[in-house]
Simulated assay, not measured.
Amino acid sequence: MEITAELVRGAVEIERTETGVRPHRLPEWARRQADAQLELVEAQPAGVRIGFRSAATRVTLAARAERFGYVGVPLRAPGVFDVLVDGELVASASLSSAVQILRDLTTGEITRSEAEPEELTFELGVSGGVERMVEIWLPYSESVELISIDADEPLAPAHRPAPTWVHYGSSISQGSNAASAATIWTAVAARLGGVELTNLGFGGSALLDPFVARTIRDLPADLISVKVGINIVNADLMRRRAFAPALHGFLDVIRDGHPDTPLLLVTPLWSPIFEHTPGPGAFDPDALSRGETRFVAAGDPAEVRSGKLDLATIRADIDRVVHDRSASDPNLFQLDGMALYGASDAQSHPLPDDLHPDAATHRLLGERFAEEVFGVEGAIPTTR
């Protein structure tokens, strides 16, 4: 069966290819304005899922993946597809092969392999004859071309009548180090909050790009959250003079399309290497020599006095932006990222690469966000 746009949820745009469809998290006009890094990660379908109602007991998906990596850096594990039936995880699988794209950090040279589409068959673990809601969540760490889907019973597109949550963030929001597609913290929070997720978490690329603000402006949304700061610091992208005006501008554009929609600003999670040290971020060469991936902050803490940004400064400036706007924007809210992951969590939930949470911490983040935002006493309980 051909995969149509009606079956795909959480994507901003569907690209028709020669053999199938490719979900995107930015529209084509915005992709033309993006750099190579953002072009790469927006095509990785974090939060995107195939959704349908069916009495099927078995589903087969044909797909082809593209996986990106760096020469000399340990490769990520293959992305994981998750299957949920009526909201419960019943099966997971990965494609055994993929188009492999490798970049040499010393020369900039990129090599590309080829791969054929592959089939994944999922046993849904249910008896036939009863129609259920089935979702296939697509991997967050690899681009996926969807070829076809077949089942042992007819399937029909289905969308839950739930509020839509549009979230903008960094690689942590996209899913880095989560166990699988449906266990990213944003996916966990969406299920607990009873909302439909559009995940605009872009690895290394939550940089307040104006075209992303215009994309959010034009999307349907009942709640919008903007989690920003870590990529501004680790990319060493701007100085303090530029950050607050850029954030104001980003929010102004969103408000052009969503003047009254609840809008939540989330400050950065605790990150030990960048709390009081500016970027740029870099791979830890000693760890690479041991076959590990870890990150370091390569800036000088003394440079914060001259305008470079660390996370402590980012949080203070977000506080100021919220204060300056709140009198005229009663639907603007703020969530302290340290309430999701703070210094006190480091012992029980250490960051394995000194930057990204592990699988258990993703679950913790999702649970805490759902409680802080969607709970009875949360920041925006009306979206539940």
Rank of each mutant, 00 (worst) to 15 (best):
E2Q: 11
A5T: 15
L7R: 07
G10N: 13
G10T: 09
E15D: 02
G20H: 09
V21Y: 04
R22Q: 15
E28I: 10
A30Y: 02
R31C: 11
D35Y: 10
F68S: 01
F68G: 00
G69V: 05
A77Q: 13
V83F: 13
G87T: 13
S92F: 13
V99M: 08
V99N: 06
I101R: 00
G108E: 06
E119M: 14
F122D: 03
V130S: 08
P139H: 07
S141C: 08
L146K: 00
I149P: 08
E153I: 07
A156W: 07
A162V: 12
Q174W: 06
S176D: 11
S180Q: 10
T183V: 11
I184Q: 04
V188M: 14
L192R: 15
G201T: 02
L207F: 05
L208T: 04
P210L: 12
F211Q: 07
F211R: 06
A221T: 05
I230Y: 00
V233D: 00
N234F: 02
L237T: 07
R240H: 11
R241G: 03
F243S: 08
A244I: 02
G249N: 14
P262R: 04
I273M: 09
H276C: 04
F283R: 00
R294Y: 09
F295W: 15
V296S: 01
E303M: 05
E303D: 14
E303Q: 03
R320S: 14
S326D: 10
D336V: 12
D336P: 12
A339S: 12
A343K: 10
A343P: 06
S344F: 05
Q347C: 02
R363S: 04
L365A: 01
F369W: 11
V373E: 06
I380A: 12
